[in-house]
Simulated assay, not measured.
Amino acid sequence: MLVVFRAYGPVRDVVGAKRVERELPSGATVGDLLSGLLEEYPDLESLLYADGDLGDAVSLTVDGVNVSRLEGLETVLSAGDDVRAAPPIHGG
């Protein structure tokens, strides 16, 4: 299944593109997608992870929903999902 990964801010700087597509097996998770991306872009690890879990330096969403509101790294992806990694937006 084809999944789109969109990178913004420092993630885009590391990946070198705003959009990358990945073909994943059925039942793949957000963690699987990120593992594959880390093999290609090892500098992503410091942006995405803290103490072995997702950190807070980057907001990670699947189809507009933050993965922290889903199943985190275990969130199962579907064909056509849009996974975005961007600096969190703070406001007041």
Score class of each variant (00 low, 15 high):
residue 56 D to M: 01
residue 74 E to Q: 13
residue 75 T to H: 05
residue 85 A to P: 01
residue 53 D to Y: 12
residue 55 G to T: 09
residue 88 P to E: 07
residue 56 D to W: 09
residue 1 M to T: 14
residue 92 G to Q: 01
residue 5 F to M: 01
residue 79 A to Y: 05
residue 15 V to Q: 07
residue 69 R to H: 13
residue 21 E to N: 05
residue 91 G to A: 07
residue 59 S to F: 02
residue 23 E to D: 10
residue 51 D to V: 05
residue 82 D to T: 09
residue 13 D to N: 15
residue 15 V to F: 11
residue 23 E to L: 08
residue 39 E to F: 04
residue 54 L to C: 02
residue 1 M to E: 05
residue 54 L to D: 05
residue 87 P to C: 04
residue 4 V to F: 03
residue 1 M to W: 09
residue 1 M to Y: 01
residue 29 T to F: 06
residue 57 A to M: 06
residue 80 G to C: 06
residue 21 E to S: 05
residue 24 L to E: 06
residue 65 V to L: 07
residue 88 P to H: 10
residue 91 G to N: 04
residue 62 V to P: 00
residue 19 R to Q: 14
residue 13 D to A: 13
residue 12 R to P: 08
residue 31 G to D: 09
residue 69 R to M: 13
residue 61 T to N: 03
residue 37 L to E: 12
residue 27 G to E: 09
residue 25 P to S: 14
residue 75 T to A: 07
residue 60 L to N: 05
residue 76 V to E: 08
residue 21 E to G: 02
residue 25 P to G: 07
residue 63 D to R: 12
residue 11 V to M: 09
residue 11 V to S: 08
residue 5 F to Q: 02
residue 8 Y to N: 02
residue 7 A to W: 01
residue 57 A to R: 14
residue 83 V to M: 07
residue 57 A to P: 00
residue 2 L to S: 00
residue 63 D to Q: 11
residue 5 F to G: 01
residue 38 L to H: 10
residue 44 L to I: 03
residue 10 P to E: 07
residue 82 D to I: 13
residue 67 V to T: 11
